[in-house]
Structure formats: structure tokens, C-alpha cells
Amino acid sequence: MKYPVAIWMLAIGAFAIGMTEFVIMGLLPNIARDFDVTVSQAGQLITGYALGVAIGGPILVMLTIKWNRKYLLLVLMGIFILGNIAASLSPTYGFMMTSRIITSLAHGSFFGIGSILAASMVKPAYKASAMALMFMGLSLSNILGVPFGTLIGQNFGWPMTFIIISIIGAMALIGIIFFVPMTKKQEATSVKTELKILKEKRLWLTLAVTLFGFSSVFAYFTYISSVLIEVSHIQENLISYLLIIFGVGVTLGNIVGGKLADWNLNKALKIIFIMFILYFILLYFIQMNGILMVAGVFFFGLIGFSMSPSLQYKSTLISQEAPTLASTLNQSAFNLGNALGAFLGGVVVTNLPIASLSLIAPILTLIGLIFLVISIRVEKKEGTLV
């Protein structure tokens, strides 16, 4: 078998983690009503989660750098399951926020450790595709998990959604116990070795490109349910179906983005960023029409998430000596982008018409484009152009 069963178990874990991160966007109006808070305040549950990933992930990696990777994965999935159970039982907004932050601690480390572990279980020729297979769980969570979780939450109450996520997490935990091999002691791995990557200027520029370039996705997508209801005038019970269409766009975006990255990494990112900025302007008019928004959310997912493979690949090219920390830091950058986007989106929703989100969100990608240009110039100067 080209890909061991263990990698599929990691993909199930990735599916559960992706579902818990993204499903809340389709449930924001419901959660806001139950906790008697505004949609903007409910949106900060996404910000809290993203900050937990961004800050907690690297700290957890450094604290557990000497741990056996299989044991660490088991602990991370245990934290994830308990966090989601706590979320389902949340009596108050504050308790829900705390539960989300606890759950988020598993996110960055799971993807950082899991991707390295997946690559170690196959022949060298299949390492990249093994990592992609694990991350496919994240993509599938957008197509299947998020719409399904939204549908469950709207019909049976949002707590049931988090209970189901806990069950999927338990399935991944059992799969890891039985199928993921016990790894050998990591060779020459130390906090000092991993921290050396922090001196690399190119790393910080790449993380800045990731943070700002991707943050515009969540500035808009965090409040997609409200946009579809208030601006596009789509019925609430149809939102889960549009999220399926969005998920298909996300998956195709990952495929297209990967092929573009193989073609020319930096040119691919430039093209995607410019296209995304222009598409946001077009989206301002599309979002006024419910029928057009069916195609609108598809292309939003396709263009927005086509940058993910390129950004992920760009970070790995400069992190050979510190793969664990660099992988986790890249997840931190993505999630800081999520937090920044959700926060600024909340400010816009609170103070301006929600339709204006599509005109303000692309400013973040424009900043990412500026950092990309600076990064390319630095790489040219140092002779390390990728």
C-alpha cells in the first residue's frame, strides 16, 4: 500500500479539527441568539480560537519537543475532544470562549507533528503527497463537515454539532492508537536547534505574507452567514448547501494552487493575490443577488484557498533544519490571519453596512502582496529565490 492506514487516521483527525474551526461560521447567528450577544461578539469566538492556535501551538511544540510523536498526538487529540465536549455544554459566552481556546491548543501542533509523521511513513518520492493526503482531511471538512455540522446545529441546536465533532475526534484517537507506529527517538532535536530558524529573515517575511494575504478570506467568510441572509436575502436553511458549494471551491482551489506552486511559486502567489483583490470588488456587486452568490461563494473559496498550498510550500523551503517549529509557526500565521480578519470584519459589521466587507477585506491581501514583493527582493539579494 502506497499510503499506510495511519495517514488516513491522521486525515480523520485533520477533518475533525478543520470542522471545529470552520463550522462555527455557519452557526454564528444561532450562537449569538442563544448567548444574547451580537453576531460581531459571537465572531470573536473565531478570533479566540485562532489566537489560541497562533500562540499556544509554538509554545506547546517547544514544551514537548522531546516527547515521542505518537504520544504527543494522543495528548493533542485528548485535549481536542475534551475542548469540544466542554463547548457543547457551555452555559455562557465566557465558558464557550474558554472551551474554544482550550480546543485550539491541539490545532497547530497536530498539523505540525502530523504532517512530519505522515511524510516519515512513506518512501521519499511520496513524502509531499503523504502530507497532502493528511491535509486533505482539512479540505474535506469544508465540503462535508462544515455543511453537515451547520445543518445539525440549525435543526438540533449548535451543542449537538460539537458533540458530533467530539465523536469524530474519538475515532481519530482510536485510529492513532492502533495504526500510527511508535516513532524512534528524534535525532538531535532540541529547543536550541528549532529556535535557530527564528533568526531567518525570510521566515518572518513569509509568515507576514501568509498572515496578511490570507486574513482577508476570514474578514469576509467569518460573517458569510450574515451576508447571505441580510445582503443576498437567502433563507437561513439554505446556507448549509451554499457552504457545500464553497467547500468544493476550497478543494479545487487547493488543487489549482498546488499546480501553480509547482509551476512558479512566487509568480503564482502574485497572480492569486491580484486576482483575489479584484474579485472582492466584483463580489461587492455579486453579493446583492442571491442567485449569483451561488457562483460567488464557489469562486471565493477557489481563489481564496488557492493561495494555501503556495504559502505552505514557501515556508517549508526555508525550514529544513527546524521542521517542527516552522510547520507550527506557519499554522500560527494562518490563524493569526484568521483572527485579524475576523476581528476587523467584526469592526466593519458593527460600524458599517455589512455589504462593505467585500471592499475593506481586500486591503489585507494588498498588504500581503507588498510583503511578498519585499520577500522576493530579499531572496534575489541573498541568492535564495525560490
Rank of each mutant, 00 (worst) to 15 (best):
S327G: 14
F343D: 00
I370M: 13
A333C: 09
I370S: 09
I370G: 04
S308N: 15
P309C: 06
L364E: 03
A355Q: 15
T316P: 13
T316R: 12
A322Q: 08
L311P: 03
S306G: 08
I360Y: 10
A339N: 02
S319W: 08
G346N: 05
L352D: 14
G337F: 03
L359S: 06
Q312P: 01
V349A: 10
G304Y: 01
L344F: 10
M307G: 00
S310W: 05
P362V: 06
N351L: 12
F305M: 07
G337S: 08
F299W: 11
I370E: 10
S310N: 11
F334E: 02
F299C: 08
I363R: 00
V348S: 01
Q331I: 13
N351W: 11
T350V: 14
L357M: 11
L366F: 14
M307K: 06
N330C: 10
A339W: 01
L352M: 15
L359H: 04
G345T: 05
L344P: 02
N338F: 10
L317D: 11
Y313N: 14
A342F: 00
F334L: 11
A333F: 07
I367E: 02
V347I: 15
T350G: 14
L344H: 05
S308E: 15
T365A: 08
L344A: 05
L329P: 02
L317T: 13
A361P: 03
I360K: 04
S332M: 08
T316H: 12
M307R: 06
A333D: 03
S332R: 04
P323V: 12
G304T: 06
K314N: 15
F298W: 02
I354T: 07
N338D: 04
F300P: 02
F298D: 01
E321H: 13
N351T: 13
T350S: 15
E321P: 08
E321W: 11
L336W: 00
S308R: 13
I370Q: 06
N330M: 09
Y313R: 15
L359D: 10
I360C: 04
T350N: 15
S327I: 07
A361N: 07
N338H: 06
P323D: 08
G337Y: 02
